[in-house]
């Protein structure tokens, strides 16, 4: 018996939900970034699963996955640079501490 596509979709859904819960509940900015990475990966897993089950033309799924991974890498670089800049300014990486609009 082979695994149906639905299993992969539900797995990705569970991972996405875990990432969402982390992003909503944790207060440390770095953990929030980790949670966002989880959600990204869940989405990319979906792309590859759909590609494997021949839902797109030959290359489309893999190409989308590569572009998504590149975007995620750029996003994490910028996000962590922001975390470091915020830490330098506020001496804290707690997202609840960062609420003043003044510099």
């Amino acid at each position: 018996m082979t695994i149906p596509l639905g299993h992969y979709l539900i797995l990705a859904g569970i991972i996405f939900a875990i990432g969402l819960a982390g992003a909503l509940t944790r207060k440390n900015a770095i953990i929030v970034l980790i949670a966002i990475e989880l959600m990204f990966n869940a989405a990319i897993l979906n792309l590859i699963a759909f590609w494997h089950y021949k839902q797109f033309a030959a290359l489309t799924g893999q190409m989308f996955a590569i572009f998504a991974i590149s975007i995620a890498a750029a996003e994490s670089a910028i996000g962590l640079a922001l975390v470091i800049a915020i830490y330098r300014h506020y001496k804290s990486v707690d997202v609840d501490d960062i609420k003043s609009l003044k510099g």
């Binding site: 082979t2 639905g6 979709l9 539900i10 859904g13 969402l20 839902q55």
Partner: peptide, 21 residues
């Protein structure tokens, strides 16, 4: 969210019947 996604996947019978390439 997880429940909604699972429900959507379950409700759509296409996802269950597809076979890999």
């Amino acid at each position: 969210t997880a429940g909604l996604i699972s429900f959507a996947v379950r409700a759509d019978s296409v996802a269950e019947t597809l076979s890999p390439g």
